[in-house]
Design a protein around this nucleic acid. Structure first.
Length: 428
RNA sequence: GGAAGGGUGGCAGAGUGGUUGAAUGCACCGGUCUUGAAAACCGGCGUAGGUUAAUAGCCUACCCAGGGUUCAAAUCCCUGCCCUUCCGCCA
């Protein structure tokens, strides 16, 4: 959520900022609603004030043993007027809230102009794609030949966009999780958390998935409760601080790492990436989340992104990092770097991590604050998160980049300790 | 699933219809005292919204949430959520 005061006082500037991401702010609607709100609120509060003072007088009169009947008569009309005014005020406020909760974050100044992912700008590249002297297989064929990746059985058990992993591939999948967690823990200073995979609507509102993106989520069928499967650990982890006010001596930044499954309905993605592990309804992810002071979030995004990139470097996987253009940036984000890993079978880089600075956009929805040691006043935190990394896509990248002519796959050195010293999957 | 008891400020914990945004203690901030610290004493100390040039005043809201009763609700009624204890079941 944007700061209502900012919008009120800088309508045109806000509209211009949002235009960069292709969002057209309804300036006229906001101006009208705001004008209405102001008038009704003042009226309502005046009536409330009058009710309060009259009620106090009645109390005093009664205590003094006076006849209060005439006083009650006086206040009769007031009661009705107040009820009307309050109802009217609620209505306007709901209209404003409904509209504002659907307004996305303003892109940062350095976010490039553009309308689609084609306009994203590469900021750096690491490693160089390997030259293969044989015909590369994609991970689906590799996995099938190795007997460790099975999409047919998964579709029997559940349906499309699920996978069964077996043997060394399942083990490598688990090894990747452990390796990433350990690296972020011991080298990057994150604290491990284990969180619920089912969340309520308030949590999803806090991080921005609701109210606009309900169709991307799996909702649990339950008459009594509004529960959803998490689309990313960002939701439960960022909501750790919902409705919290950190003590002024709280140590910031707070850096959390969590491993969770993620569930996405992939509505609107029909026909895209239907083959293989790229786009599944269920996948696992190691997620990085930071809560920082407002003046430190720009720098925090750089280090968080570097933390995610470090995983790819240790795994020896070539990648590039792009900054998302205005048209491609997510609803809640002010600035996002995507990290894209080299996928040999597709001869291109594919997203494996998305690292974003949300500034105070999520924190305002969440009411996640800390007490400024200088002023003693509550201040909204800045939130950031990024995949560090998506496990399925990392597995896919390892399989394809480390494949050998005989169909076997070498195990990256850093994973070997997590696989009982195994150096190769398949082959002889 | 059955039974009972609870949700009040950063924390603990009073308060059952009226001048209570809320006693008291702890914590915290400022001051006095002290060589310094502690103790003691004095003062301050919630959040959000509105108005405003103002982080000055003033007004409003908030005692889990949402409704209701009333001139007036932390206090009474209803619904929901959450927590605790006991029993049952269960990984």
């Amino acid at each position: 959520m944007l700061d209502p005061k900012l919008i009120r006082g800088n309508l045109e500037e806000v509209a211009t900022g949002l235009a960069k991401r292709g969002f057209q702010l309804d300036v006229e609607l906001l101006r009208a609603l705001e004008e209405e709100r102001k008038a009704i609120q003042i009226k309502t509060e005046n009536l409330q004030s009058e009710r309060n003072s009259r009620s106090k007088n009645i109390g005093k009169a009664k205590a003094a043993g006076e006849d209060i009947a005439p006083l009650l008569k006086e206040v009769d009309q007031l009661k009705q007027d107040l009820a009307n005014a309050e109802a009217e005020l609620h209505q306007v406020q709901h209209k404003l809230d409904d509209y504002l909760s659907g307004v996305p974050n303003i892109p940062a100044a350095e976010v490039p102009e553009g309308v689609s992912e084609d306009d994203n700008v590469e900021v750096r590249r690491w490693g160089s794609p390997r030259e293969f002297d044989f015909e590369v297989k994609d991970h689906v064929d590799l996995g099938a030949d190795l007997g460790g990746l099975d999409f047919e059985t998964a579709s029997k058990i559940t349906g499309a966009r699920f996978a069964v992993m077996r043997g060394d591939i399942a083990r490598m999948h688990r090894a990747l999780i452990q390796f990433m967690l350990d690296t972020h823990l011991s080298e990057h200073g994150y604290q491990e958390v284990n969180v619920p995979y089912i969340v309520n609507a308030d949590s999803l509102f806090g991080t921005g998935q609701l109210p606009k993106f309900a169709e991307d989520l799996f909702k649990i069928a339950d008459d009594e409760r509004d529960f959803f499967l998490i689309p990313t650990a960002e939701v439960p982890v960022t909501n750790l601080l919902r409705d919290e006010l950190l003590d002024k001596d709280a140590s910031l930044p707070l850096k959390f790492v969590a491993h969770t499954p993620c569930f996405r309905s992939e509505a609107g993605s029909h026909g895209r990436d239907t083959r293989g592990m790229i786009r599944q309804h269920q996948f696992e992810k190691v997620e990085l989340v930071q809560f920082v002071r407002p003046d430190e979030s720009d720098e925090a995004l750089e280090s968080l992104t570097a933390n995610a990139e470090a995983i790819l470097q240790k795994l020896g996987l070539p990648y590039r990092t792009v900054i998302l253009c205005g048209g491609d940036i997510g609803f809640s984000a002010a600035k996002t770097y995507d990290i894209e890993v080299w996928v040999p079978s597709q001869d291109k880089y594919r997203e494996i991590s998305s690292c974003s600075n949300f500034r105070d956009f999520q924190a305002r929805r969440l009411k996640a604050r800390y007490r400024d040691p200088e002023t003693g006043k509550p201040v909204l935190l800045h939130t950031l998160n990024g995949s560090g990394l998506a496990i399925g896509r990392t597995l896919l990248a390892v399989l394809e980049n480390y494949q050998q002519a005989d169909g076997s796959v070498l195990v990256p050195e850093v994973l070997q300790p997590y696989m009982g010293g195994t150096t190769k999957i398949g082959g002889v």
